[in-house]
Amino acid sequence: MEDLRYPIGTFDFEKEVQEKQINFLIDQIEALPELLIRAVEKLTDEQLDSPYRPGSWTNRQLIHHIADAHMNAYIRVKLAMTEDKPTIKPYDEVLWAELNDSQLPVELSTKLLEGLHKRLVVLLRSLSSSGLERELIHPDVGLLTIKKLIDLYAWHGNHHLAQITAGISRMTSK
C-alpha cells in the first residue's frame, strides 16, 4: 500500500536543494496544470469520484486539494518575498478536502491552477540567489527557504499527478 500512497517517494525536507536544480523544478511547477488537465480530461464522473487507491481521497478531491495547496504555496512565497521570516498558517488539508467545494467540477481547479501557476512561475523566475534563500517559518516543519518551497511544491504536484495517473491505470486495466 505504501507504493500506492507515495508512487514517487516521500518528500525529503533534509535534502539540500542546489541552485542549479531550481530552473528544472520551476519547469515542473509550470508544466503541472497541463499534465493534470490531460490526465483527467476524459474521466467520467464515476472515475473522478473513485478513490485513486483503496481508502484514499477521490480523484476529484485530490485535484481540488492540489489547487488548495498551491494557492497556499503562492501566498507563502509572496509572504517570504515581502516579509522578514514570516510565520505561515498551516491548514487541515483533510478537513478542507471534505468541504462542499471539493465536489465541484474539476475544471474549476484545473483552470485555477493554470492561472495560478503562471503567476507563481513569474515570481519564482524573478528571484535572485539571495531571493531563493529568503525564509519563512512553518509551525510544523520549522525554517524553510523559498528554494525549499520550490522543491516541495514541484514534488507535491508530481506526487499527486502520479497518484492520479496510477489510479487511472488501475481503473482502466480492470
Score class of each variant (00 low, 15 high):
Glu46Arg: 11
Asp27Pro: 01
Thr145Gly: 08
Lys20Ile: 05
Ile75Gly: 13
Asn100Gln: 13
Arg76Leu: 04
Glu14Cys: 06
Lys89Tyr: 08
Arg119Ala: 08
Asp3Ser: 09
Ile37Arg: 14
Ser102Glu: 04
Ser169Met: 07
Ala97Pro: 01
Met1Pro: 02
Val121Pro: 00
Glu133Val: 02
Arg125Tyr: 01
Gln28Gly: 12
Leu123Gln: 04
Asn100Gly: 07
Leu108Thr: 08
Glu107Thr: 14
Thr58Ala: 00
Val106Ile: 15
His159Glu: 02
Tyr91Phe: 15
Leu95Asp: 08
Asp27Thr: 12
Asp140Thr: 04
Ile168His: 01
Gln21Lys: 11
Leu136Cys: 12
Ile164Phe: 04
Ala67Pro: 07
Gly167Asp: 14
His138Ala: 02
Glu30His: 04
His70Cys: 01
Thr44Gly: 07
Ser109Glu: 03
Met71Ile: 14
Ser126Lys: 11
Ile63Ala: 00
Ala166Cys: 02
Ile29Thr: 13
Lys85Asn: 11
His70Ile: 00
Glu46Ser: 13
Lys85Leu: 15
Ala69Asn: 13
Trp57Asp: 08
Leu104Glu: 14
Ile22Phe: 00
Ser130Lys: 11
Lys174Met: 14
Ala166Arg: 15
Ile26Arg: 01
Leu104His: 10
Ile75Cys: 00
Lys78Phe: 05
Ala31His: 06
Leu32Glu: 13
Leu123Glu: 06
Leu108His: 14
Asp12Met: 04
Ile66Met: 11
Ser169Ala: 15
Ile168Met: 06
Glu135Gly: 10
Glu14Leu: 13
Leu132Arg: 13
Tyr52Asp: 03
Thr82Ile: 01
Glu2Thr: 12
Gln103Arg: 15
Asp140Val: 06
Leu123Gly: 01
Gly115Gln: 09
Lys148Ile: 07
His117Pro: 01
Glu41Gly: 00
Ser128Asn: 05
Leu35Gln: 15
Arg170Ser: 12
Ile63Arg: 02
Val17Trp: 08
Val17Asp: 08
Asp151Pro: 00
Ser126Arg: 06
Lys174Pro: 07
Leu149Ala: 07
Asn158Ala: 05
Arg134Trp: 03
Lys85Val: 15
